[in-house]
């Protein structure tokens, strides 16, 4: 396999992990614009552990992910007082704060970045991404996921039917942060370098775009979104400086054409199973 293709596949894998990190809270109706912040925690924490106490990468990355989860758990209750777009701004602010803290933290290099000495090969990155996808496929078949969908569709009714909406929402936020932390750890150990500026607003917005463009109705949507955002800019390389102009036009066309996300439940429904009942929401 050529080095170029290998690099693109690594990028795709990391984007897939991040897409699911955003998709999980979104399936409970939380628009989390702070994914890059949790990713940063995973990246820096795991890098710190392998660098400073020579922990194996295979322990350090889960530990970093756990650290991201702990932060999410700690800030989750106050942040989840907000809803909708207010929650999006709260998580976005949190992400910016986390980024700015790492930017000023001299233990991990501050603004000049932090070199990571342990190396994760491409195969490790791919396997991690496949692991995350499989995990999400399994999770999407559980009652837990159904509860999240119920909360997304109507939190009040879900509450009335006896779901513990507060804990479930907290779980969705935390689990998303853990996945983002895994993505961060893998990212740090593959590229052997982390710098805080990477985890910026751009990244946050693009991660959410993966999910929204792919579609939130099914578990395959984020996968498609990550693929679109990784592959299309590569395929457009021939167009030089017009590359991102064309890319943006494609995004607009895709959303006008399939306004519920490209991959919808209806699209995946086998033809012999008949039509979706009017008004039904998956």
């Amino acid at each position: 396999m050529s080095g170029y293709l290998e690099g693109v596949l690594v990028l795709l894998s990391i984007n897939v992990i991040l897409a699911y990190a955003a998709a999980l809270p979104l399936s409970a109706g939380q628009l989390n614009l702070g994914i890059a912040g949790f990713m940063a925690i995973g990246a820096y924490a795991s890098a710190f552990l392998t660098n400073e106490i020579a922990l194996s990468m295979w322990l350090a990355i889960p530990a970093g992910a756990a650290a991201a989860g702990v932060v999410a758990l700690a800030v989750g209750l106050p942040i989840l007082r907000t809803h909708g777009i207010y929650l999006a701004l709260a998580t976005f602010s949190l992400g910016e704060i986390i980024k700015a803290v790492f930017l000023n933290l001299d233990v991990v290099g501050g603004a000049s970045g932090y070199a990571v000495f342990d190396y994760a090969g491409p195969m490790a990155v791919w396997l991690t991404a496949i692991g995350v996808v499989v995990f999400m496929l399994i999770l999407s078949q559980t009652r837990f996921f159904l509860y999240l969908t119920a909360i997304k569709n109507d939190a009040t009714v879900a509450d009335l039917f006896g779901l513990n909406t507060r804990n479930l929402q907290l779980a969705a936020l935390t689990l998303g942060a853990v996945i983002a932390g895994i993505g961060g750890g893998v990212y740090a150990h593959h590229f052997s370098f982390v710098e805080a500026q990477y985890f910026n607003a751009h990244l946050n917005i693009f991660i959410v775009l993966f999910v929204l463009l792919g579609g939130v109705q099914t578990v395959y949507g984020p996968l498609f979104g990550a693929l679109f955002f990784t592959a299309v800019p590569e395929l457009l390389r021939f167009s030089d400086e017009w590359r991102f102009v064309l890319f943006a036009a494609l995004i607009i066309i895709a959303m006008a054409w399939r306004s519920e996300g490209v991959i919808t439940a209806k699209l995946l429904r086998a033809p012999w199973r008949g039509k979706t009942p009017e008004g039904a929401r998956p």
Binding site: L212, V216, F244, V245, A248, I251, I252, M255, S259
Partner: peptide, 18 residues
């Protein structure tokens, strides 16, 4: 879904910038 036009308006931001 109301999140959706958000994506295409972001698409326009990228378009204008580039």
């Amino acid at each position: 879904d109301p999140e959706v036009p958000l994506v295409s308006s972001l698409g326009f931001l990228i378009l204008f910038e580039n």
